[in-house]
Design a protein around this nucleic acid. Sequence first.
DNA 1: CGAACTGTTGAGAGGCTTCAAGCCTAGTGG
DNA 2: CCACTAGGCTTGAAGCCTCTCAACAGTTCG
Lengths: 231, 231
Amino acid sequence: MINKRPNEDDTDLSGFLLFKKLTEEEMKRLNFEKSCSTFKKGTVIYREGSRLTGFFCVTRGILKIYKTGIDGKEQIIKFAKKGEIIAYRSLLSQELACTTAKVIEDAVLCHIPYQTLLYLIQNNWHFSHHMLQIVCRELREANDYITDIAQKSVRERLAEVLLLLRDNFDTDRQDMLQISLTREELANMVGTATESVIRLLSEFRADQLIELQGRKIKILNVQGLRKTANI
Amino acid sequence: MINKRPNEDDTDLSGFLLFKKLTEEEMKRLNFEKSCSTFKKGTVIYREGSRLTGFFCVTRGILKIYKTGIDGKEQIIKFAKKGEIIAYRSLLSQELACTTAKVIEDAVLCHIPYQTLLYLIQNNWHFSHHMLQIVCRELREANDYITDIAQKSVRERLAEVLLLLRDNFDTDRQDMLQISLTREELANMVGTATESVIRLLSEFRADQLIELQGRKIKILNVQGLRKTANI
DNA sequence: CGAACTGTTGAGAGGCTTCAAGCCTAGTGG
DNA sequence: CCACTAGGCTTGAAGCCTCTCAACAGTTCG
């Protein structure tokens, strides 16, 4: 699970906007109390229903955050990549975790204990303010997604998800999405059956909107996808 | 739009958990800078895309908070009633409003200017902490709803919505829900067509789960609804 | 009292899901 | 390094849930 001491670059939190306004002393304390580790693909960082002891800063890799619904079907809520924080929601509202976090690309995470979080909230209003902004943004995204999923067809949602992936993840020089998701994972983002994703991806390819090479997807026609997504 | 000076009872904010830990001076400032008004059913308090000057505390009545999706179809995100606050999300993240708020039962709202909000965040960490907890709870609810709407059938979702209404709103002595929603509004909560809601409500009635009297709904069989909702 | 909105019911179409069967790939162990 | 196996991927067929359209009844409010 925990594998080895990470690269020194990957333990540096000074790049996080959230910590920008910390005093030197607060930063020192943060660095003293954090603990960073590398995690291999497939590792579950925390599980739905568990009690959390702190939140995590992602300094490398990608995680999927999902809820388990009917019949164990996963609903992917979001991905977390470098620069983002996870597990803070349940921590702040003092609830059990309502999602599971699983590594989908080898990752480095820094654990920040609850006590440290409280200390920062109590001592630095800039920190609380940044935190509020982060949660509020995420809440807007969630609300947007509710509207989409409630009103759009599966076809529209899939097109939208592809555009979302393009905006949020790296592409190689040929504009090929570097993130590697199974068809099932795509289905669990869109909220549909795996077979539907497969059929629709084929149609998108036939329509020259995308190109497929195994799990790698190349976006050929952004405008066309926008139109398909009804944005 | 703004009708008259509200009852004195309805301008009292001391009952709000959010303000529990304010100092006497902060409370004085809050009371000085707030402005309370009554609003009639149908009034739009703020509209999607508008810039907000503050947030509102609901001291009476009920509002629906909704987004406008495809073809102007409303997606109801939540209701706000006495003791709840609205419009704080866009304010905190410094974005334009992403929802519209409309009064569905005559309401009294107290407007708190952005400056006051900032003042409280900067001076009282208890306030920020409470605020963080409120947003985080709402985010969990949104995530739960995403999973529901993505994985459950319309029938299951409608049963769930009825239970949610029962938990959150008053009933009279005969266990009749006092909140009055149109079929269309129910549909806009569930994310379905009005006709589907009508048909399903009829089925629920036939199954002795509920009783209907115009817009008033009486919950007869909570267990049965739970089962129907697949909870 | 009429207009405009809300509620109801029916019929038909179609988008998605489910089940089933076979192919392919990716990762493992010999 | 290669064979093997498990899981991922693909395609087809059948059927159902839900939406849309349409017509009409009922209600509310100016």
